[in-house]
């Protein structure tokens, strides 16, 4: 990397990258409106919308009442009738209040109506643990929504993807749910200028490797990368795949990697049972990549409990770097 390319690599935080995407969308498309609780002058609970209200006014950056069900439904109705709403949940946990509109309406309207309508709706969900916010403000519920045909479910893990995937979601005619890990909001990274999209349904190989495949989502991608560096020093060459999209899942990238390495670890923050890793594992087990497995598949997911408050407990119930290291070492050394 020379000095010149370094200056070209503009860095933004994950939150800034999302804001930039929304800014571009608001500026370029009159139909785009932002809706959510305290996203106006407050700037959003995590300062993602920031000062956009000053630029676009309260008609385009709309504070909703604390009415998740109603607000989500308004967004669905608006999307059905010509607007392109970006609806922010203050915490992904609050989606539980709006599941009716997300699952029964947004996801199904197109199908129920025989394809005569579409719902170009984007919903943003600040997700994940690590903030000491306990059980009702720390969940990773992407698998809930990933289970619903009609929705697309994204989990960008970098500032670049956070922007690109939001813009891709706005281009998509169907409802797109974006889970943003709260710990990532302040993470900085290279973000290209201007308009670009990151494809939905396409995983990214963050680190090529030959000994085992780590499929990770969201925050876990960074933990997997940290683990992969340590593993490399030990002579274990891990391939890290950032799934990026939970639904539709990128079969080909995952299967090709497993065919190459023969070993698979899935790392995800949501509760392990019936989670994203279960789907990744089943996908591999059901495919021709099965014949390439040289060890059992390992899933590292959230513990079977709500996210606890105590910081040590909070850490203990979601996969951490040492957990990934243990699993990878055991796998690579044929101990599992």
């Amino acid at each position: 990397m020379n000095a010149m390319t370094k200056t070209e690599l503009r860095e933004l935080s994950y939150a800034e990258a999302i804001r930039e995407a929304m800014d571009i969308a608001l500026a370029s498309d009159e139909r785009v409106v932002l809706m959510g609780e305290d996203i106006g002058v407050y700037g959003g609970a995590f300062q993602v919308t920031g000062d956009l209200v000053e630029k676009y006014g309260t008609d385009r950056v709309m504070d909703t009442p604390i009415s998740e069900l109603g607000g989500a439904g308004v967004a669905v109705g608006a999307a059905l009738t010509g607007l392109k709403p970006i609806f922010e949940f203050q915490f992904s946990d609050f989606a539980a209040l709006a599941m009716e509109q997300i699952v029964n309406q947004a996801a199904k309207v197109r199908y129920m109506l025989g394809g005569s309508v579409s719902v170009p709706l984007v919903m943003r969900f600040p997700a994940g643990s690590g903030t000491g916010a306990a059980a009702q403000h720390s969940q990773s519920i992407e698998a809930w929504l990933g289970h619903v045909p009609g929705l697309k479910v994204l989990q960008p893990s970098t500032p670049e993807d956070a922007k690109g995937m939001l813009l891709a979601a706005l281009e998509d005619p169907d409802p797109v749910m974006i889970f943003e890990h709260k710990i990532l909001y302040k993470m900085k990274g290279h973000v290209p200028e201007g308009y670009y999209t990151t494809p939905i349904g396409k995983a990214a190989i963050r680190r090529p490797g030959k000994d085992l495949t780590i499929v990770a989502t969201s925050m876990m991608v960074h933990k997997a990368m940290a683990a992969a560096e340590t593993l490399a020093a030990e002579g274990i060459d891990a391939e890290v795949i950032d799934l990026r999209t939970v639904r539709p899942m990128d079969r080909e990238t995952v299967l090709a990697s497993v065919r190459k390495t023969g070993r698979l670890v899935c790392v995800y923050e949501g509760v392990k049972t019936l989670g994203v890793g279960a789907e990744v594992s089943a996908m591999v087990a059901e495919s021709d990549a099965f014949d390439f497995l040289d060890a059992p598949i390992v899933r590292l997911g959230g513990a079977e409990c709500p996210i606890p408050y105590n910081p040590e407990l909070e850490k203990a119930v979601v996969p951490q770097v040492p957990d990934i290291l243990d699993a990878a070492r055991n796998l690579a050394k044929g101990r599992i």
């Binding site: 023969g262 390439f292 040289d294």
Partner: peptide, 17 residues
């Protein structure tokens, strides 16, 4: 406990392939 399995060769899918 392993008796039932003892006569069945354990092998990974890749080894089998």
């Amino acid at each position: 406990g392993d008796v039932a399995l003892s006569d069945k060769q354990r092998a990974t899918p890749r080894a089998r392939a």
